[in-house]
Design a binder for these strands. Structure first.
Lengths: 338, 338
DNA sequence: CTGAAAGCGCTAACAT
DNA sequence: ATGTTAGCGCTTTCAG
């Protein structure tokens, strides 16, 4: 664990010269000494101490990625959507030469503290957060933070989301175009869940386009887990609702519905058509393959990281809110009815 | 961003007193001043600078978790096994009060450098590594490192793995007990892949127990992806191999085989029985549900983190190699034959 | 192009 | 129980 000072002594120069070499400041060091010192660095296997560097620079070249344990209790990385998204984030951040600190948090208090502890250069919140919590975090440590799938009207807040409305709209419209008229929307319907509300609005807009009204909406209120889906699926198979198709606001929920319905003698898509949301790789693996509203996670991650680094580098940017497009991935879980 | 010094000035005491309060050293500070300083810390919202602390302590309270981009090119976190495992690791590490730095690496060079850069207190390699690379890393930075699913005869190397032999054995034995006699083993068969070799040995051991010999082994050599599985599945459906059951060394591979076979008119498990490996949550979602050799990821992660921290805390420990148990999770993809 | 001095925020080791 | 001194490894600033 050689230090700058040690290398300087071996080379018979000052620490500053070595420092300049380490930082590639060719303009400040003659070519000869530069090369010589480089050879010593190699020989004595010098690696800079980032703690020392961060201390003086007041910045650690580190991005903290937070996921909340609120949403899915227990292991957040069991969720394939979050995992895959995180993987994309990690690789883009690394491409930018920054380190990634991961933290699943319960209290947001600890989130802000971590940022300050480490003098993080930026942060990403992977799970939705209400606007007031966003403010709190921003207030406690002023570094660029991107909030994913959150909704904050404040123009300075950096957010990346998807076109939720369109998601609900295209899914419903497709079902309608296949002849379905009694269509349920399944998901967690709660005033705090802006996301689902937008999808619902899209759903209603599509209904209206086909001459129906909001009173034709069938809301299947449920938490968005596989298990809850199974319950709902059996209820559907037992004709507790008068519908022929379901737009589920999460793939896992849709898959649960599929299984629950099937266990009760219902054949998908013959007896019930189904559309999911997220387009997980799972959709291709199950039988029948699940038609789903797809968000391009890679693109979304790219947008997040780009937005973050534009902000870190202080580039003037009016575009603080990014909305990613969605599209319908057609597979086998929807059947036309006459 | 108040500093120790600032708090000390406000309080009219020395920095050391404040430092002692921050570090909870009650024995060194009178109760009155302790409480008073605590109130100031709260009032001025002081948070310690971990870079400074790490610099002097030569340790950053940080564990680096590495995953190699070798195995699955692209996004490692698409792999549900690795993601879920990582999630468990993260939560256990955090419980121990340490920070988690994630890094997917291609060259191991950069891995060792990161550790030294940050004065990491420990590291975990989530993906298998050959013994010589393990040595190299250990040589470059002497902190406790746990290697998962790697095989290093060196007794001082910390490793956590599973009983691969038993995995192959119980899967095969179960198929045999269900009357199958012509059983294939599907996986990536390569001399560097010690893991699969062990599973193969277990497979052969089970065959022998039922009066067969190694010559009865049917090796279906393939990479372990869903797509490769599909190819293999269609080959099987077209009777290119004379077998009634397959033990696949990965769930995703098994699922691919399932789909490939099905597309070619083969009904699972009626025409072909299937056992996977890893027991991903997927196994419960697909139809038919996949029987699989289960490794308890939570237990495995717990073992890794315990081993790591025992080593960090310098507790004498002869038990540097941990082998986790596996068991067969019976579901619906195996049918008895007469 | 090269160097000397000062200090980032913290803690260990000694005073008092 | 509290304070003083010194220094972790690096960079910034200012002089040569």
């Amino acid at each position: 664990m050689a230090t700058l000072k040690e290398i300087a002594q071996k080379a018979g120069v000052s620490v500053m010269t070595v420092s300049n070499v380490v930082n590639g400041k060719h303009s400040k060091v003659s070519k000869d000494t530069f090369d010589y010192i480089l050879s010593l660095i190699d020989k004595y296997d010098y690696v800079p101490n980032l703690n020392a560097r961060s201390l003086v620079k007041k910045s650690s070249h580190t991005i903290v990625v937070f996921t909340s344990t609120f949403v899915s209790h227990g292991n957040v990385f069991k969720d394939p959507y979050l995992s895959e998204f995180f993987g994309e984030l990690e690789s883009f951040i690394r491409e930018n030469g920054y380190y990634v600190l991961v933290q699943t948090v319960d209290a947001l208090q600890s989130a802000a503290a971590s940022l300050r502890n480490w003098h993080a250069d930026g942060a990403i919140f992977m799970s939705p957060l209400p606007a007031e919590k966003i403010r709190k975090i921003q207030a406690q440590y002023p570094c660029p933070v991107v909030f994913v799938d959150s909704n904050d009207p404040e123009p300075s807040t950096l957010t990346v989301g998807i076109n939720e409305f369109k998601g609900g709209y295209i899914a419903t419209k497709y079902l309608l175009s296949q002849g379905h008229r009694r269509i349920g929307i399944a998901g967690f319907y709660d005033e705090s869940a802006k996301i689902v509300q937008e999808r619902y609005k899209g759903y209603v807009a599509a209904l209206k386009e086909f001459g129906m009204s909001e009173s034709d909406a069938v809301i299947l209120h449920t938490v968005t887990t596989y298990e809850a889906g199974m319950k709902l699926g059996s209820a559907l198979a037992n004709h507790e609702y008068d519908i022929t198709a379901v737009f589920a606001t999460a793939d896992l929920l849709a898959l649960g519905i599929m299984e629950g319905a099937r266990l009760n003698g219902c054949v998908i898509p013959r007896d019930l058509s189904l559309i999911g949301f997220d387009n997980l790789s799972l959709c291709d693996i199950v039988t029948p393959k699940l038609t789903s509203v797809s968000q391009d996670l890679r693109l979304k991650a790219r947008s997040v990281v780009d937005l973050l680094f534009r902000s870190i580098e202080g580039k003037a940017d009016s575009d603080n809110k990014i909305v990613c497009d969605v599209q319908l991935e057609l597979r086998q879980s929807v059947q036309a009815v006459s």
